[in-house]
């Protein structure tokens, strides 16, 4: 239950928090564009975005609605592919991958944390965390062991057999974080992770992220809240489908 006792104050001021030395490049995006067709209209969601993300980075992606933030996140999460430009994930070209290859990348390399948690309502916490491992084809015994371990690491060792409706909002999001961690992904991609939580619980989740970062994970948080972005070590701001600024959080 260590995480629940952490507060922003306990984390220290942003500038004084540790910054881990960045590792090799995980994500390399170069001049990526994305077009959507809505009837006769063509929407330029991304108009040439270039971005490198390295292992052990803690990145926040910010921007007002319509800035292309969601499109970029879908692209980073391999839920969508670019219209043009280059996207390499750990050196593999994502553009041109078929559905199954994208599914495999998502399964093995990316851990998703959603604003609305997206837990399966009829499965208990353990089953929810096991889900990516099922798709990865692991045996039941190994699956359960790893899911237990992940749940314990987010402080929910005593809630394994609770269904989502028997858990608080913060606990649900921690189950989702455990699910994101369980496949030991290259990046954890969080979309407004505190958007559906009260501020105290939100702080707890961000404290959990801090710990994950310090433990060597690569985090990308998409948010429109400055408070949330403050936890990151680097902030990328988007506007009208372009990167407006990309600087370390000071």
């Amino acid at each position: 239950m260590e995480a629940e006792n952490l507060t922003v104050a306990a984390l220290g001021e942003p500038g004084r928090r540790p910054v881990l030395p960045p590792g090799p490049v995980v994500i390399a995006i170069e001049n990526v564009t994305k077009l959507y067709r809505m009837g006769d209209e063509t929407i330029h969601a991304l108009r040439g975005v270039s971005l490198d993300i390295r292992r052990n980075e803690y990145l926040a992606i910010m921007g007002p609605s319509g800035s292309g933030k969601s499109t970029l996140m879908n692209m980073l999460g391999c839920l969508d592919t670019p219209t043009s430009g280059r996207y390499d994930f750990t050196g593999r070209a994502v553009k041109g991958m078929d559905d199954n290859e994208l599914a495999e990348i998502r399964n093995r390399e990316i851990g998703f944390v959603f604003q609305t948690f997206n837990l399966l309502p009829r499965s208990d916490a353990l089953r929810n965390v096991e889900l990516p491992l099922i798709y990865a084809g692991l045996r039941p015994a190994e699956r359960q062991a790893r899911a237990r371990e992940a749940l314990e690491s987010v402080g929910l060792g005593d809630r394994m057999h609770h269904k989502p409706n028997e858990l608080s909002g913060g606990q649900r999001q921690r189950v989702a974080v455990a699910r994101a961690l369980v496949n030991r992904p290259s990046i954890i991609l969080a979309d407004e992770p505190t958007g559906n939580l009260d501020s105290k619980t939100g702080v707890e989740i961000m404290a959990l992220f801090e710990r994950l970062y310090e433990a060597g994970n690569t985090l990308i948080v998409v948010t429109h809240e400055e408070d949330v972005a403050h936890y990151a070590r680097r902030v990328v701001r988007l506007r009208d489908g372009r990167i407006e600024s990309d600087q370390p959080m000071s």
Binding site: G77, L79, D99, N100, A103, E104, R106, N107, R108, F112, F114, N118, L120, L131, P132, Y135, A136, R179, N183
Partner: peptide
């Protein structure tokens, strides 16, 4: 639909 989306995000293939 949303559950299907979640499952796909977590790595479920079309066949699954």
């Amino acid at each position: 639909t949303k559950e299907i989306g979640t499952r796909k995000a977590l790595g479920a293939r079309r066949r699954t």
